[in-house]
Simulated assay, not measured.
Amino acid sequence: MRIDIITVLPDMFEPVLQASILGRAISGGAVDVAVHDLREWTADRHRTTDDYPFGGGPGMVMKPEPVHQALDAMVDLDPQPPFVVVMSPQGRPLDQALVRELAAHPRLVIVCGRYEGFDDRILSRADLEISIGDYVLTGGELPALVLVDSVARLQPGVLGCTESAADESFSDGLLEYPQYTRPAEFEGMRVPDVLLSGDHARIAAWRRRESVRRTAERRPDLIARAHLSPEEAEFARSIVEGSETHERD
């Protein structure tokens, strides 16, 4: 997979792109990430990428010409047509289902905003606008890094364990079950006995139930979209309504 990032702050990306799993994925060739300085496509000596908004108002707006020219250059860089993403608080919320959709594209181009936003004519080049949450940041660089990390980890060979991407929060619409490691007892808190039993069927059933429980307790909004059996749906409903009284193993 190839990812091109267009930004006015390219230096923000290098430390993250070189670190940990993402850094190893890039250095190992599982993902090809290139960061491009939008100012390379400006025409004036001040390398201007923004201007005052027509109609007045606070702040500055990103100019259309540099972004359009940068996107033209992205097309010329690789014969594979890119899927163009603009990071915007007005975009589609990023969730794991969307991450999987994007991870299937062989090539992404991510455009990072700054200032008060984009000249709306820039959005005509976008295949999709994406938001990472209902809050405002100073620019699209941090959201772009979130997107790159979430998409890259789904590429073959990026994660050390092939099951890791499938067996985690949001992979099936639910939050992940509780996890434990050694020691079996710490400050009076014991690991559930079922996890020490060696009975893989019981462990799988416990994990599934705890995943449903945790989602119902912490993110009841996800329950309606999760794929649950009738028994699991009733269990989740009892938790949401406060009537669930079963003890945990």
Rank of each mutant, 00 (worst) to 15 (best):
M1N: 06
M1E: 00
I3C: 09
I3Q: 08
I3D: 11
L9R: 11
S20T: 04
I21S: 04
G23Q: 08
R24L: 13
A30S: 14
A30Y: 05
V31W: 07
D32S: 13
V33M: 08
A34Y: 07
A34V: 13
D37R: 01
L38D: 08
L38I: 05
L38A: 07
R39V: 05
E40S: 12
E40Q: 13
W41H: 08
W41P: 00
A43I: 13
R45E: 11
T48S: 14
D50N: 11
D50S: 14
Y52C: 14
P53D: 14
K63H: 04
P66K: 02
V67C: 05
Q69S: 11
Q69M: 09
L71G: 10
L71C: 05
M74I: 06
V75M: 13
V85W: 00
V85F: 06
V86T: 12
M87N: 00
S88L: 01
P89D: 02
P89F: 05
Q90G: 03
Q90C: 02
R92V: 14
L94C: 05
D95T: 13
V99Q: 08
R100L: 10
E101I: 12
A104K: 15
P106Q: 08
P106I: 02
P106R: 09
C112G: 12
R114K: 11
R114V: 05
F118M: 00
D120T: 15
D120C: 10
D120L: 11
I122W: 01
L123I: 05
S124H: 09
R125G: 09
L128C: 10
I132M: 10
G133I: 02
D134S: 07
V136T: 05
G140Q: 00
L142K: 00
P143E: 02
P143D: 01
D149V: 06
A152P: 00
Q155H: 14
P156S: 01
P156C: 00
L159A: 09
G160Q: 02
C161W: 12
T162W: 13
E163I: 10
E163S: 14
A165T: 06
A166N: 14
S169F: 05
S169D: 07
F170P: 01
S171A: 15
D172R: 14
D172E: 11
Y180K: 11
Y180F: 12
P183K: 09
A184E: 10
E187I: 04
P192V: 10
V194R: 04
L195D: 08
L196N: 04
D199N: 12
D199C: 03
R202A: 15
I203L: 07
R207H: 02
R208G: 03
R208V: 01
E210K: 12
R218K: 13
P220R: 00
I223M: 01
R225P: 01
A226N: 06
A226C: 12
E231N: 12
E232L: 02
A233G: 15
A233N: 14
A233R: 13
A233F: 04
F235L: 15
S238A: 15
I239A: 04
T245P: 03
T245H: 09
E247S: 15
E247L: 15
R248W: 03
R248K: 14
